[in-house]
């Protein structure tokens, strides 16, 4: 059935009732608000003239309008501005409006791409993101698989722990990890020193950036696993048991069942989670920024902090924008796969 058929009949009330009162309807989040229902008859009264104008494509576009407006204003316009900035010379004087911005063509990109420091930052970002995403997904999947196999009380226990760590604000989590890995009073050093043959008393984890990134990765993964595990667990509970059992009858082992039955069914979720993880882990900022006291050393710079550093510390907003733009392009390449997958889903109905 096509939408156009039902549209003219009810379009006006739908639009006025929900559209106009939008900002007040926070309560809608939880329960159907009676107000919408009451408003609709009144909204419908004005008659058919208005209704006809909103036929066809008008209604869906009206419904979309607020979302598109917000996205265009706060993302579309800045995205354009980002591109423009990256082709200009734009420093403090331009920012403060004392001097006009000057066009410099591809100079900023040439400078960025020709800088060895930039490429080492790219490499570090890629390594870090890969490591964090793989760890997150593997651990998340293991925890999810575990969750369907444990007793109820254990499941509750694990869920509480997961939810508690998931909902920890990132800034809080960074602070806690910084404290746990403090060189003098950190509990991590103390605990690890209990292992025979290990003495980490007074050990500073951040002197060596590889070790430092271990801590940062642990923090990021710890924060990301709950979302992945809980979502995958919910997905697992929807895998039809008959399918798994049938596979088992056919002689498949646990690994086989997982690979040939469970995983294919979960694939959309896994793809979504992996992509989201890539986006999030590549966008890691406060974890590094705050962990290094607001000024990451050169060997701790990731693309995000590096762009921030160029823009706001070195006051070269144009170069910062150029780096940000390169980051966007990199990311778009990585997640093209996800896009395709999602589009296929979008076309299903």
């Amino acid at each position: 059935m096509s939408a156009a058929q039902t549209t003219p009949e009810q379009s006006t009330p739908g639009q006025t009732a929900t559209g106009r009162t939008a900002p007040e309807h926070t309560a809608a989040a939880a329960a159907p608000p009676p107000r919408t229902a009451k408003a609709s008859p009144a909204g419908r009264a004005p008659g058919s003239g208005l209704r006809r104008r909103l036929t066809g494509a008008a209604l869906p576009w009206t419904l979309l309008a607020p979302t598109l407006l917000v996205l265009l204003l706060v993302l579309g316009y800045p995205l354009t501005r980002l591109v423009v900035l990256s082709f200009q010379r734009f420093g403090q004087s331009q920012l403060w409006g004392f001097q006009p911005a000057e066009w410099v063509g591809f100079d900023n990109f040439a400078a960025v791409l020709g800088d060895g420091v930039f490429w080492s930052v790219v490499l570090r970002t890629v390594l870090f993101t890969t490591g964090a995403v793989v760890l997150t997904m593997v651990l998340g999947m293991l925890v999810a698989l575990l969750l369907v196999r444990v007793s109820t009380w254990v499941k509750t226990l694990v869920n509480i722990a997961l939810v508690a760590s998931w909902s920890m604000p990132i800034v809080v989590a960074v602070t806690v990890f910084k404290w746990m890995f403090d060189s003098d009073y950190g509990v991590a050093n103390w605990l690890l020193s209990r292992i025979p043959g290990v003495d980490l008393t007074g050990h500073n984890w951040f002197t060596n950036s590889t070790q430092g990134f271990l801590v940062i990765t642990a923090l990021v993964v710890w924060g990301a696993v709950p979302f992945v595990a809980i979502t995958l667990h919910a997905g697992l509970t929807q895998v039809p048991r008959e399918l798994e059992e049938a596979a088992r009858m056919d002689g498949a082992g646990a690994a086989g069942v997982f690979r040939h039955v469970t995983l294919p069914i979960l694939k959309p979720v896994v793809v979504m989670l992996t992509t989201l993880s890539v986006i999030w882990d590549m966008g890691v900022f406060p974890q590094v920024f705050l962990m290094r006291g607001g000024h990451p050393e050169p060997e701790y710079q990731l693309l995000t902090t590096y762009s921030y550093d160029r823009a706001f510390v070195a006051n070269d907003y144009a170069t910062g924008s150029a780096i940000a733009l390169v980051t966007v392009l990199l990311l778009l390449g990585v997640v093209a796969v996800y896009m395709r997958q999602m589009l296929t889903i979008g076309e299903v109905e």
Partner: peptide, 30 residues
């Protein structure tokens, strides 16, 4: 996007999905 078939629907979906890709940290300056 789920209840109506209209021209430009696909473009909107692509647009919304793309927007999700943009690392927000990159946008802070503009």
């Amino acid at each position: 996007i789920s209840r109506f078939a209209f021209r430009g629907r696909r473009a909107v979906i692509v647009g919304i999905l793309t927007v999700q890709m943009v690392p927000l940290i990159a946008m802070i300056i503009p």
